[in-house]
Design a protein around this nucleic acid. Structure first.
Lengths: 141, 141
DNA sequence: TCTAAAGTAAGAATAGTTATTAATTAAAAT
DNA sequence: ATTTTAATTAATAACTATTCTTACTTTAGA
């Protein structure tokens, strides 16, 4: 009935809570973000289950993994092809749903089977621009 | 005299060995790759020194950090603006020096100060295409 | 209802990176 | 050239994110 049925994974309470949290979430949360949020609703939730569920959803193509932060995965429940605008200071990520016409150059070495293209725009977001001392760490991106 | 002098960091034997290894290196090595390679020439090299040097070079704008692999940094000594073509299977990274004309959509939420744009093409490289069982892990990217 | 397969929770293990500290060294200042 | 001092190194401990292990539990289907 519900949209959730469409994906062929066993529906457990834990998975439903996680999927509910992710659905329409535009914050590109980390595994810890997800764990912290869902354990409020489901206090016995374990970190392993968060990771297991993320892995499963991703295998089913329901999730994109983002490697934006140094050493910390972030997850994007928006699986429509889109690009990202990343604030190098606060690490917030904004979705960009424009389509860019990008073609690889010709050449032997580029003879890949392309399966995806991601454009990352890096910059300082309006909020961080306003704050003082905002250039202390700007070089770090 | 040499090009190395231009950057304003103390020149130590350790740093020179690391810089020499990185110069013109197109392999986008990880910290471990670098450590393994340079400790052959300089056996007392410590991992901490590799990380310290990478940090310093990056602060001086002499290095780009790539977050391609899950949980492992890779480093790019080519600081000219360029893009990447990534094999989702063997994780090799090919540089693309074409320039793409990319503009952010109009809109309040996109009012960033843009400081960089990176395009990542994902695909299967020619070498991996030839190999058998090459779709075992293809979904994992 | 029973069974087999799959999922969960807790915590141990691992990998990559960062932090700490005492000893060493490079570059600047005599 | 020697001294000074401030930065760098090496060893290793600590930390963080993620994966693995295991015993127990639950789900879905026969």
């Amino acid at each position: 009935m519900g949209r959730k049925k469409e994906i062929s994974i066993k529906l457990t309470p834990q998975r439903l809570v996680i999927m509910e949290y992710l659905e329409g979430n535009m914050n590109h949360p980390s595994a810890a973000d997800i764990y912290n949020a869902v354990s409020k609703k489901y206090p016995t939730m374990s970190f392993a289950t968060v990771y297991n569920t993320l892995e499963t959803l991703w295998e089913k193509g329901r999730l994109r993994e983002l490697t934006i932060d140094r050493g910390k995965m972030r997850f994007d429940s928006n699986t429509k092809p889109h690009h990202h605008l990343i604030c190098v200071q606060c690490k917030n990520i904004t979705d960009i749903h424009r389509k860019f016409a990008l073609k690889l150059p010709e050449g032997e070495q580029y003879n890949f089977d392309i399966i995806g293209i991601h454009v990352d725009f890096y910059g300082i977001c309006p909020k961080c621009k306003k704050e003082k001392n905002n250039n202390v760490e700007v070089k770090k991106w």
